[in-house]
Simulated assay, not measured.
Amino acid sequence: MTTQQDQLLLEHYRDLIGPTPVVQLDRISPQPGPTFFAKLEFLLPGGTSSDRAIDYLIRNAEKEGSLRTGSAVVLPTDGTTAPGAAILSRARGYEFIAVMPESTPKGFVEHTRLLGGEVVFSPEHDHIRGAIALAKELINENPGKRVLINLYENSANAEIHKKTTGQEIIHVLGKNIDALVVGIHSGGTIAGCTGALKAVNSRCKVVAVEPAESNVLSGGKPRPHNLHGLGLPAVPPFLNQAPIDEVVKVTVEAAEDGRSVLAEKEGILVGPAGGAVIAAMLEVCEKMGPDQDIVGILNVPGHYYLARPEPEEEEERSEEEAAPVS
């Protein structure tokens, strides 16, 4: 017989990829108003729901024979998915190369390197489009060894979230969820969850969250922005097919307010992407009733944005702290 203690014994850290908890956000739910819930995807090993898709794509590549002993996984990313991909690649014996813009926050760069990954920078002004292009160049340089994992262009990204993330929400909260709010990164999470939830409740309102400065889903062009962890280079076909009901464009300021409210009132520290989801939930709930439920998916823990200062900055701060107070 399997006991609760047995379930806590895992063969490897990567085996934590699985169901994540859903928590009720009592302190930020408006009263009267709908009940807020959050699915804590940032508790996955790499801190994002993309861990699920990356694991799925790596296993598929192994089955197909493209990933084998001596192979290297290459991932274009804004940085948020790199630590998880490093964990999954290195755990299965593969080299890992993350291609990310030069503007990527230091926390993601440091974590990726500490986890055994190599970081290659693409030009800052090209943002994620430049990272994708450079990753494909690296594949072409050594196609027999390097394998591309591209979440932005692979429909399997959506498939795995329909089978897992979406089903987990239904299992915990039931079929009668009134609204789902998801930040747009590669598009896989919202596309998959939309498929799962709409299949059991066509009235569930699906809300996508994107940066106000780079509102691709709303018909705008991809532009540089400071809302890290969100934003599409283009709308992938698998997302075009998802029946999204509303798109909320969130500013950096609103996202930071959302982060602060969540941290101070609920004790949950997330990055800007999670803050944007909270900001969107607070906006969407104004049109909802007190007997309704709204669930947001929270990705990327806040500690990635608490990178250590450079040695010069550390020295300057120490000198300032040591200076006598007049």
Rank of each mutant, 00 (worst) to 15 (best):
G144L: 10
A135Q: 08
L173P: 06
L173V: 11
V147W: 11
E137V: 12
A131D: 00
I139Y: 08
L134E: 10
E153S: 14
Q167E: 13
Q167H: 01
L173S: 08
E159M: 09
G130C: 00
G174E: 07
N157Y: 03
T165G: 14
A156I: 01
E137D: 14
G144D: 12
L151Y: 10
H185T: 12
G166Y: 07
H127E: 13
G174L: 03
P143V: 05
T164F: 06
N142A: 15
T164W: 07
N142E: 14
P143I: 08
D126P: 00
N154P: 09
L180F: 12
V172H: 05
N142Q: 15
E141V: 03
S155M: 07
N176I: 00
K162I: 03
E153H: 05
K175A: 07
K145Q: 15
A133C: 01
A133P: 02
H185M: 06
V172W: 04
I160K: 01
K175L: 04
G174P: 00
I184P: 06
I149Q: 12
E141W: 02
H161T: 11
K136V: 02
V182I: 13
H127L: 02
L151P: 02
Q167L: 10
R129S: 10
K163S: 00
G166C: 05
V147L: 11
H127T: 05
S155P: 14
Q167T: 04
E168C: 02
I170M: 03
I177E: 03
